[in-house]
Amino acid sequence: MAHIPIEAVPYLESAIYLPMLLIVLEKDYELIEKGPFKLKRPYVHLIEEAKKLAENDLQNTKSYLRKHSLKVVQGERDELFTEYHFYYQQIFEVRRYSNIRLRNRVEELLDSYLTRALKAHSVFQKP
């Protein structure tokens, strides 16, 4: 039985996680904009930079998927699991992800992208 190429799985999973990350960043951005922060600009800039990085990575992911005839479609969902359908040429594969795993991975990505954004635009960078 043929399977999805193993090197394609990180791209397929990025197509799952990055849109979730962008939703979290957008909601956090809105909360900061509306919130009682005294100095909003640093937080807003950090989130905007993280969004740019994530959007760029998502664009690269989508490009890879198109180039290699790959597709991801969300399937059924319940309180514990969400299934995703992976398509590659004539191959169809269903993978179930724990909703807790999805949340934890998005949280890891959030930390990673905020760290990258901070490094990219830090006031304390050495010249």
Rank of each mutant, 00 (worst) to 15 (best):
Q74Y: 00
K119T: 05
N99T: 00
Y64L: 06
Y11L: 09
V123L: 15
R105M: 10
A117N: 02
S69P: 00
A54L: 08
I100C: 04
E107D: 12
Q59P: 00
P36G: 12
Y88I: 04
I32Q: 02
A54Q: 07
Q74S: 09
P36K: 15
Y88N: 05
D57E: 14
D28G: 09
R105D: 08
R66Q: 12
S98Q: 06
R66F: 11
H45E: 15
R66D: 12
N60P: 00
E30I: 10
I6A: 15
A15V: 05
Q74E: 10
I6W: 11
M20K: 14
E49P: 03
L70I: 04
Y29E: 11
V24E: 11
P19C: 02
I91C: 07
L53I: 14
L25G: 03
Y84L: 01
L109D: 05
V72N: 05
H121Y: 06
E108G: 08
F37D: 09
N104G: 01
L21R: 07
E30A: 14
H68I: 07
Y84R: 00
S98R: 06
K34V: 03
G75R: 05
V24P: 03
I23N: 12
A8E: 10
L109Y: 10
F124P: 00
Y97D: 01
R95P: 00
P5W: 05
Q74L: 05
E33R: 13
P10T: 01
K62F: 12
V73D: 10
I4Q: 03
I16F: 05
V44E: 11
E108I: 04
E7T: 04
G75S: 07
A50I: 03
A54K: 10
N99H: 01
E107Y: 11
V94F: 02
L53T: 02
S98F: 01
N99G: 00
P42M: 10
